[in-house]
C-alpha cells in the first residue's frame, strides 16, 4: 500500500496550468469584460454632458432662460424654456406612482404572504410577461383602447357637486383622450412589475421569526402585515418606488404616443401635455446637428441623465441606511 502511494506523488496530481493561465490571461479577459461597463458609462456621461452644455457654452443661453415656461424654437429669437417638459415628466411620473404603488405593493404582499403555490405559479410568470411587452405595444394599446375610452366616457366637464354646498370639484373633460391621465395610466402598468418584484424581494427578506412571533401573539395576518412586515420592509419598498420612478421618468415612446404632446404646463389630468422624453423623441429627427434647437434637446437629455444617476445614488443611500440599522 505504502509503495502504491509513493508511486503517485501528490505533487503531480495538480493539473499543470496552461500557458494562458500562467500569464493570468483568463482573469484579465473576464476583468476587461466586466470593466467595459465602466468605460461605457464614462463615455456616455462625457458625451451627454458635453452635448448638453452646448446650449450654454456655444449658443449663449443662460441657465435662467432654460428654466422658463416659454418654449418657442421657431421664433426669431428662439426660446428654449424647458420647464414645461421637466414639470411634465414630474407630474406624469407622480401620477403613475400614485396609481401603481398601492397596486404593486398589494400584488407583492399577495405573492409573498397570501398566495398559495398554485396562484403564485400563475401570477409570477404573468408579471414576467408584463416586463417583456415592448413599450411601443403599450403605447399602441393606449391609443387604440385607453384614449378612445377616456374620450368617449368623460367628454363633458367633470363636475362633482353636493346639495347646499354646491360645486366642490370641477375639471374640463377630455377633448381627445390624449392626456396626462392616459400617460400616467400607461406608465403605471409599465412600472408595476418593477415595483412589485423589488417589494416582493423586500418582503421575502423579512425573517420568518418576525411573522411567527407576531402570529403567536395572537395578531391576525393583516395586523402582522401592517405592523410588522411593512415597517420592516419599508426601505425595500422605498427602493422599489424609486426604481419605478426612474423607469417611468425615462420611458419615451409609450408616453409620447398617448400624452398629446402640447408644450404647456398641464392644468388638469384631462389635458394634453408633454414630457422630456416625448419632446426629444418628437423633435430630434426634425433638427440639424449643432443648431440651438437640437442643443436644447441635448440639454433635456442631460436632465434625464441627472435624474437617473441621482436615483442610483438615492437607492444606494436607502440601502446603506437599511444595512446600518
Amino acid at each position: 500500500m505504502a509503495s502504491l502511494t509513493s508511486a503517485y506523488p501528490t505533487s503531480k496530481l495538480r493539473a499543470k496550468p496552461g500557458l494562458l493561465e500562467r500569464l493570468d490571461l483568463p482573469r484579465r479577459v473576464v476583468f476587461v469584460a466586466a470593466a467595459s461597463m465602466i468605460i461605457v458609462v464614462a463615455m456616455l456621461m462625457i458625451f451627454i454632458v458635453w452635448q448638453g452644455t452646448q446650449l450654454f457654452v456655444k449658443d449663449g443661453y443662460s441657465l435662467g432662460a432654460i428654466f422658463d415656461a416659454k418654449w418657442d424654437p421657431l421664433a426669431d429669437t428662439p426660446e428654449f424654456g424647458i420647464l414645461p417638459f421637466i414639470l411634465g415628466t414630474i407630474v406624469v411620473t407622480a401620477g403613475a406612482l400614485l396609481i401603481s404603488t398601492p397596486l404593486s405593493v398589494g400584488v407583492a404582499l399577495f405573492l409573498s404572504e397570501v398566495a398559495p403555490k398554485w396562484a403564485k405559479s400563475i401570477v409570477q410568470p404573468a408579471l414576467e410577461i408584463f416586463v417583456g411587452i415592448p413599450s411601443v405595444v403599450w403605447g399602441w394599446l393606449g391609443i387604440t383602447v385607453l384614449v378612445p375610452f377616456l374620450a368617449d366616457t368623460f367628454n363633458g366637464p367633470i363636475v362633482i357637486s353636493l346639495p347646499i354646498v354646491g360645486t366642490i370639484f370641477s375639471m374640463p373633460g377630455f377633448l381627445t383622450g390624449f392626456s396626462w391621465l392616459a400617460g400616467s395610466l400607461v406608465l403605471s402598468i409599465m412600472v408595476l412589475p418593477t415595483i412589485t418584484s423589488v417589494s416582493y424581494d423586500a418582503f421575502r427578506a423579512v425573517p420568518q421569526e418576525l411573522r411567527t412571533g407576531s402570529l403567536a401573539l395572537g395578531t391576525t395576518r393583516w395586523q402582522m402585515i401592517r405592523h410588522i412586515l411593512i415597517p420592516s420592509a419599508l426601505s425595500g419598498v422605498l427602493t422599489a418606488v424609486v426604481l419605478g420612478m426612474t423607469r417611468a421618468a425615462g420611458e419615451a415612446l409609450a408616453v409620447q404616443m398617448v400624452i398629446g404632446n402640447s408644450p404647456t404646463l398641464p392644468e388638469a389630468i384631462t389635458q394634453p401635455m408633454t414630457t422630456l422624453t416625448s419632446q426629444i423623441t418628437l423633435d430630434m429627427g426634425n433638427t440639424v446637428f449643432g443648431e440651438p434647437w437640437q442643443d436644447a434637446l441635448w440639454t433635456m437629455s442631460l436632465v434625464l441623465l441627472v435624474i437617473s444617476i441621482t436615483s442610483v445614488v438615492l437607492v444606494r443611500v436607502i440601502n446603506k441606511r437599511r444595512m446600518g440599522s
Partner: peptide, 11 residues
C-alpha cells in the same frame, strides 16, 4: 452596472 440600467433607453 446600476447606472446603465437606470439611464433611459432614449438617452
Amino acid at each position: 452596472e446600476e447606472s446603465i440600467s437606470s439611464v433611459p433607453s432614449i438617452v
